[in-house]
Structure formats: C-alpha cells, structure tokens
C-alpha cells in the first residue's frame, strides 16, 4: 500500500540541522529544533503532531516563509535564506492554509485561481489554460464563474488548492487544511490530495493532527515539542503506540480495536484501516 512507485530518490526540499525560535522582545518561544528531513519528488509525506508541536513552524520553514536561525533549508538546491531567490522558492513550494475564508482574494472563482499566475506575469492564454486545468483537478470546473462566498468550507479549500496548482509548483504543502472542515469537507480534501499525488505525481506534504489522514502516506514524520520523535511508513509509526501517546496523538479506531482484541487473546494483527480490521475479525468466525 505504501510502496508508491512515484516517490523517487531525488530530494526536492532538504532541511539540514534546522532550528528556529519565535522572538518578541524578551520573550522567546521555541519553534523547532535540529530538524533533518528530505522531501522526495513524487512522495506523499505527512507531518503529524498535536497543536503546538512545531509542525506549522516546520511547514513555514520549508517554503521560505520563515528562515532558520541555524541550519539550512534548500528547495531544489536554492537556499531559502537567499533574499534574492525568495519568490522563486515560494513559487515552487505552494502552501494551503487552515482557514478557507482567509485565502479567497477575488469575487469570482476563476479570478481567484488566476491571481497567482497573474502576479508572476504569465501571458493571458497560458493563465486560462492553467485555471482550466487546476479547476479540473480539484473537481470544481462547474463553479468557475461563480462566487467563492457561496461555497462550503471543503469547496473553498479545493479552490485554494487550485490557486496553488495554477502556479505550477513542485511541491504542495497543506498546513492543517482540513482542521476547520466538517467530515464531508475533510473527505473532499483528502480525495483531492490523493488524486494529486497518485494521478498527477505531485509531491505533497500534509501537516495534520488526524492520524487517519496519515494512513495513505508514503512516509510520516511525528513531531512533539519542536522535534521529530519518530518517522517511517505508516504501519511502522502507528505500531509504536507509546511514542504516539507521548506525542498527544490518538490511534485510528481500527487500530485501537485490533489492539484490544489481541489483548483479549484473539489472533488479530495490528490494523490501521477499517478494512484490515474487518478482514481479520471475519477470519476468526
């Protein structure tokens, strides 16, 4: 399930010994410490952590929104601390944020999606093509001429993703983009993300506190208190229940039930999806 043939050995983003603290006057609060990671082209990477674990800080470091105090972040070989290259970096690493209402800039959806490429000075016909393609990928083509303020939260986030895609980024980072959505909206975004990665080969970094959104990832990094505390394929990471608990995360329902059944003496392997749990329970009867 996790051997994604699209993930390559080529690093698009590299973080090397990165630390960052927030400062306001005398007050220093810790952001992240000693982060080392590589985002490989074509992979679906999930960064998991509770509120305040430093995961959003890390996301902002990966697209040059923040610059490390020590260590280095490079995007396709470009150092994000190079002031002359800041726009280049941000056009390669697109970011979708948490609140759908804060990301709409225009009163007509197609203008909203066109806003990014317009700022890059792309010719009109090319922009048209990009807007069409981007709306198509997120399944919002029929709303093109409509107004964003009549959309649901999930639909607004899909427009925000389309607006990023129209910039033709190398990587899309979603920073808790499902946190404010209802279950239906969350499902829409997760389906869009999987389609982007699996069908279009887009490199995706998803920042979340929901473990069930991490099940389909190629790799997971778990953050706690500003540090990466574990990493690996979902099954490896989920199996380490103790360190997940310490990081304030909650296993998916299927995992918890499989553990309880095993504890009660039944031969039920650790499940991460509902399907796996159903398989092993039905096998017992």
């Amino acid at each position: 399930m996790n051997d994604n043939a699209r993930a390559t050995q080529e690093a698009v983003i590299t973080a090397d010994g990165v630390s960052f603290s927030y400062r306001s006057g005398e007050y220093v609060s810790r952001g992240v410490r000693e982060i080392n990671l590589e985002v490989m082209r074509g992979e679906f990477l999930v960064i998991l952590g509770r509120n305040g674990s430093g995961k959003s800080t890390l996301a902002k470091l990966l697209n040059g929104f923040l610059v490390p105090d020590t260590g280095k972040v490079t995007v396709l070989g470009t150092d994000t601390s190079d002031d002359d290259k800041v726009y280049e970096v941000r056009s390669k690493v697109g970011m979708v944020f948490q609140n759908p209402d804060n990301q709409m800039v225009a009163s007509v959806i197609e203008n909203d999606v066109a806003f990014g490429p317009e700022n890059l000075g792309i010719p009109r016909e090319e922009i048209e093509k990009r807007v069409t393609a981007a709306l198509e990928i997120v399944g919002m083509s029929e709303y093109r001429k409509g107004s964003p303020n009549k959309l649901s939260g999930g639909q607004k986030q899909r427009i925000a993703i389309a607006a990023i895609l129209a910039m033709l980024p190398e990587v899309v980072i979603l920073d808790e983009s499902t946190a404010m959505l209802d279950p239906k909206g969350r499902r829409e975004i997760m389906e869009t993300v999987l389609k982007l990665n699996r069908e279009k080969g887009m490199t995706v970094v998803l920042i979340t506190h929901y473990m069930d959104e991490a099940i389909e990832a190629d790799r997971i990094f778990v953050m706690n208190d500003g540090e990466i505390v574990s990493s690996g394929a979902p099954r490896e990471v989920f199996a380490d229940a103790e360190s997940l608990k310490a990081a304030g995360l909650e296993l998916p329902a299927a995992s918890r039930i499989s553990l309880k059944l095993a504890e009660a003496g039944y031969d039920v392997p650790f499940a991460i999806t509902d399907e796996e749990l159903a398989d092993s329970v039905c096998r017992l009867k």
Binding site: A253, A254, I257, K260, V281, K285
Partner: peptide, 26 residues
C-alpha cells in the same frame, strides 16, 4: 465505530452493540 460495525455486518458478522464508541464496539 458504527461504520466499522456496518462493514462487519455486510460481511455477515453481526455485532449486537450500539457501537457508539471503541469500547462498545470491542
């Protein structure tokens, strides 16, 4: 948890529990 219960029922494994949380379903 009710989704899991329904999935099991479809496969002929009928659980007699409201399954409103992990404990009840287990």
């Amino acid at each position: 948890t009710v989704k899991i219960k329904r999935k099991l029922a479809k496969r002929g494994f009928v659980v007699d529990s409201p399954a409103l949380n992990v404990e009840q379903l287990t």
